[in-house]
Design a binder for these strands. Structure first.
Lengths: 194, 194
DNA sequence: GATAAATATTGACCGTGGTCATATTTAACA
DNA sequence: TGTTAAATATGACCACGGTCAATATTTATC
């Protein structure tokens, strides 16, 4: 994980990731079994855990990669000139994150770096996301009485809330983006009183 | 689960919950094993799953009970007359929710009712919490340009964010209540522009 | 090229959540 | 009270993530 110097190591790792990718793209993230991955990669089970601390670590890596791809796209976009554009830009990422219940749960578990351990791929993307949002909010026509960083973290909080309610039996009649707008309008387009 | 008519059923159920409670109060939620519970209750393993759909369902019940106790307390409190009081009232609940990583993760998983299934105990407490907050926000000195329900859901979203960051290696230098204040001040004490 | 140290791989094994055909108990009715 | 059907309990069994001592391979040193 930290220093894969040997060629063999890199090859094995690639085989594992390849096998995982194959399973994911056909059966989805939630259906991935470690046993299937090692069989697909033609290695022993123990080898898997020599490369990834646990199953979650591989998922963290795979899902983190997907999120990073979205963020790469965000960074090529011009700062949104209004709230609706901001939401529209964000939507594809939110849709990926909610495309499987398994994905969303795993993201929640890994969105904050676990104490004392190193910061994982997904946690890094959350930091990156805040950075992108901070930039957007600084440049766009949004409130300036609150630090853009706080606003960005708030957008993240509301996005998580909307995704959670998306999976909710009683609260999912409203599309995610509409609900997000309901929160973000008062959050981003207000000013402090007095 | 739905219609425990027989006395035996109620007794068995009580034995299971008792055994679970005993384990939880000595070793914590995260250390609970189904095997230990059934042994403590002197029943077979299969019996457990006749009473609870899975381990999470028992946890949902136990943790839901704890949260409900907090909400009972909230309802006896007068509506907070300012932001700091609101946060102070909320804090004990947030502290329980973050007292174990296991608890927080489970709460996140169950805070929205799973699609098509019945609404679980924790999901119900989240609804209840929104109701209490809505009342508080209606009565207190907070912004009135946004429906109190939306404000309440926002408070919940920010609370979740603060709890998540509480477990985060890089973002946990700020106490939960201070961070919450950072979000809630612009959220609750602003007015929409134009 | 021989040998030793470091690194990577193996697969039998384990812990724990969850299943299900079978056995037992309860309730209803004659 | 005896018979029977529904409700409940049982425990052997399975699935799957994860461990670890033993083995194999690579790299370093001479």
């Amino acid at each position: 994980m930290k220093k894969p110097i040997q060629k063999r190591t890199l090859a094995t790792r690639a085989k594992l990731i390849d096998a995982a990718q194959k399973i994911i793209s056909t059966k989805g993230f939630g259906a991935m079994r470690v046993e299937d991955v090692v069989q697909g990669a033609s290695v022993a089970k123990g080898t898997f855990f020599a490369h990834f601390h646990d199953k979650d670590a591989l998922m963290d890596f795979m899902i983190g990669g997907e999120i990073d791809a979205h963020l790469d796209g965000f960074e090529k976009l011009p700062p949104p000139e209004n709230l609706d554009t901001l939401i529209r830009h964000l939507l594809p990422l939110l849709q990926f994150m909610t495309s499987e219940r398994y994905i969303f749960d795993l993201i929640l578990r890994h969105s904050g770096a676990a104490a004392k351990e190193e910061i994982g791929p997904i946690a890094q993307t959350f930091d990156r996301q805040v950075k992108v949002l901070t930039q957007w909010l600084t440049d766009g026509p949004f409130r300036k009485d609150v630090p853009a960083l706080i606003l960005a973290e708030g957008v993240q909080a509301f996005a998580v809330q909307c995704m959670a309610l998306h999976f909710c039996a009683i609260n999912n009649e409203l599309p995610m983006q509409n609900r997000l707008r309901l929160y973000l309008e008062p959050w981003l387009c207000s000013e402090k009183l007095s």
